[in-house]
């Protein structure tokens, strides 16, 4: 196991589109272990994508359970060749990135997603994800297509209130 070097913006390699994984062998398992260790070493990181460490294959490692505040999650998981087959809603949230140190910004993401993915052995799974975990997957999947959250920034001003809070307020006002 090893902590891998993270590519940082504006390294042009981060704009590269990654290829699907076709061979699920021991080399892949060793890389996944390194990716996990690298994510855990990143300050505050809850996810990482293979191209962030210079391997341009469609591999993500995520763990939304590591958020300080408890959020709905599927725990620690490796996602290989992930595809979002359905998405619902949209909301603004604050994102940062291991590849863009010392900067965070607001990004609009789908609130709920249906994700089809393979696991480390190549077995197919379907997951329903929402909120922070859905945002995390969308953020990491962008890396597979050479996109960073910087490419999706919206104004930091006035944009992070969730609908349920407005409902609470509406009932107070009525």
């Amino acid at each position: 196991m090893a902590i891998l070097k993270i590519l940082e913006y504006p390294n042009p390699l981060l704009k590269q589109v990654s290829k699907p994984v076709e061979i699920f062998d021991e080399t892949l398992q060793a890389f996944i272990a390194d990716l996990e260790e690298t994510m855990d070493a990143g300050p505050g990181a809850t996810g990482i994508a293979a191209p962030q460490v210079g391997r341009f294959e469609r591999i993500l490692y995520i763990d939304a359970s590591m958020m300080k505040r408890k959020v709905k999650n599927h725990g620690r998981m490796v996602l290989i060749n992930p595809v979002i087959v359905n998405q619902e809603g949209s909301e603004v949230g604050r994102e940062g990135c291991l590849s863009v140190p010392d900067y965070t910004g607001n990004v609009i993401r789908a609130t709920k997603i249906t994700l089809q993915t393979q696991d480390a052995e190549g077995v197919e799974h379907t997951f329903q994800m929402e909120g922070f975990e859905a945002r995390l997957v969308q953020h990491e999947m962008d890396h597979l297509d050479g996109m960073l959250f910087l490419d999706r920034l919206v104004n930091r001003r006035n944009g992070l209130f969730k609908r349920k809070v407005y409902k609470k307020s509406a009932s107070k006002e009525s």
Binding site: T46, I48, R94, E95, L98, H139, L160, K172
Partner: peptide, 19 residues
Amino acid sequence: LEEEQGVQTHINPIDTLIG
């Protein structure tokens, strides 16, 4: 504050994602 000042307030935690 809402009671004393007659204002409406909203509060939300910011869950900053690092990935």
